[in-house]
Each structure stands twice: as structure tokens, then as C-alpha cells.
């Protein structure tokens, strides 16, 4: 993740607290979605940015997850995400984001 963005996420997490905050992702493939989910939960795995070694443990979701989709305006969702629902490997993306959200990869 861009280093500037890591710093912003870090600051917002400190200001807001993770009970009222979620990170919402829009990456098109499982590896990049996993990388971002890992960065905001365990810390930056590339050890390049401000979140290196900073396990924020933020609740992270992907826009393709059913429980996110059902909270959103259906027409708007179809317009913006309809194509990706068809083109992306939805199961794998959701699997990896959920893995990190639920504490996977720790230890």
C-alpha cells in the first residue's frame, strides 16, 4: 500500500478507534486484496511503510462480500460492482480478506 495512505490509515485508526471504523477494499484479485487486508490487520508485510510491525487489527471487508453488498443501494451496486462480480474470482478474494479479518496469519 502507498506509504502516504498507510500513514493516513494509521492516524485515522488512532483517532477513531476500531469499534466504529471499517476498512473497505476494492481490489480485483485475491493476492492484492489479501495484501491490503494483511496491511490493515497484521501490519505491512513488505516492511516498507508506517504500518510495518503495526498490527492495527482493523475490521476489513471487501466490497464483494455478501454482508457488505446487502447494506448498499442495489442499483448503485449493480452499476459499480456488477462487472467485477462477473469478472473476478469472488470466492478467493472473500476468503483471503476474511482470513486476515478473523486473525489469520497471526503467530
Amino acid at each position: 500500500m502507498d506509504l502516504d495512505d498507510q500513514a493516513n490509515v494509521n492516524r485515522l485508526a488512532e483517532e477513531t478507534g476500531k469499534d466504529e471504523m471499517i476498512v473497505l477494499l476494492g481490489q480485483p484479485d485475491p493476492n492484492s486484496a489479501g495484501l491490503f487486508a494483511e496491511t490493515v490487520t497484521r501490519g505491512d508485510p513488505t516492511w516498507a511503510g508506517p504500518l510495518a510491525g503495526v498490527p492495527l487489527g482493523l475490521p476489513v471487508y471487501h466490497i464483494l462480500e455478501e454482508e457488505i453488498k446487502e447494506t448498499m443501494d442495489p442499483d448503485l451496486y449493480q452499476e459499480h460492482v456488477g462487472l467485477m462480480e462477473l469478472s473476478a474470482d469472488v470466492d478467493e478474494i472473500v476468503k483471503w480478506v476474511k482470513f486476515y479479518r478473523e486473525g489469520g496469519g497471526v503467530g
Binding site: 480485483p28 484479485d29 492484492s32 495484501l35 513488505t46 462487472l83 469478472s87
Partner: peptide, 23 residues
């Protein structure tokens, strides 16, 4: 790009084009 978890950019784009053809 893949070792940096940046995905396969052309493949993602081609799948999006294919999904467009389906829609």
C-alpha cells in the same frame, strides 16, 4: 507485477471486457 501482489493487469482488464460482453 505478480510478485508484488499487484496482480495480472492485462488479465484483469480482459476479464472485465469479457464480463462487459456478457452483460
Amino acid at each position: 507485477t505478480e510478485p508484488g501482489d499487484s496482480g495480472d493487469v492485462p488479465k484483469t482488464n480482459y476479464r472485465t471486457l469479457a464480463a462487459m460482453a456478457v452483460l
